[in-house]
Amino acid sequence: AGHAWISITNYNGSSLKIGGLTVDDGKSITVGTWGNTDPKGLWYNAEGYAQSTGVYWGDSVSIQRPLRQQDLAVVNQNITTHTSWGLVNNNCSTFASLVWNSVATEDEKVDAGMINLPGNLVSSIKEIGANVSWSLYAEGYRVPFDYPTYYGNPPIRKNPTF
C-alpha cells in the first residue's frame, strides 16, 4: 500500500533536461516507479495523472531541497538508469530514496527501511522535517501535473493503466 515519488521543478530561467525530458522554466515533472501499472516500471507524471483520473490518492508528506546543475546531473543519471520495478527493495520507495539520497546532505538522507516501504519513508521524511527544517516539509503538497505521462528511458509517450 502507499506510494513514493519525486518531483523536480525547473527554476533555471530557461528549459532544463530533467531525467529524459526537456522541461520549461517554471514547470515540473514527477518521476516514480510503479508495480501496479501496465507496464510496470519508471513513469513520468503518473502521479498527477492518477489524481486526475480519480485513482485513489491520499495525503502525502514531502520535503524539498535545491538542486545545482551538478546535482541535477547526478539525479538525471539515477532516474534514467533505474527504470525497473520489483516488489522487494526495487519498488517506488527504493527509487525515490535512491534518487533523493544521491544528492542529499547527510542530515537530509531518507531511510526507506530494511524492507523498503512507503510507510517507512513517511516516518523518515517527518523526522527530517523536524530535525532539519519544518519550512521545507509539507503535508498534502500539490502534485505537479504540467506534462503528460511518459514511460521508461528513453521516455515514450503513453498513459499507464492502473
Binding site: A1, G2, H3, A4, W5, I6, S7, I8, T9, N10, Y11, N12, L16, I18, E47, W57, G58, D59, S60, V61, S62, I63, Q64, R65, P66, L67, R68, Q69, D71, L72, V75, S93, A96, S97, V99, W100, V103, V110, L117, P118, G119, L121, V122, I125, Y141, V143
Partner: peptide, 12 residues
C-alpha cells in the same frame, strides 16, 4: 546556484 527544486513525497 540552484537551477531546480526536488521534492520527495511518500504516503501510506
Amino acid at each position: 546556484m540552484s537551477v531546480a527544486v526536488m521534492r520527495i513525497y511518500a504516503l501510506g
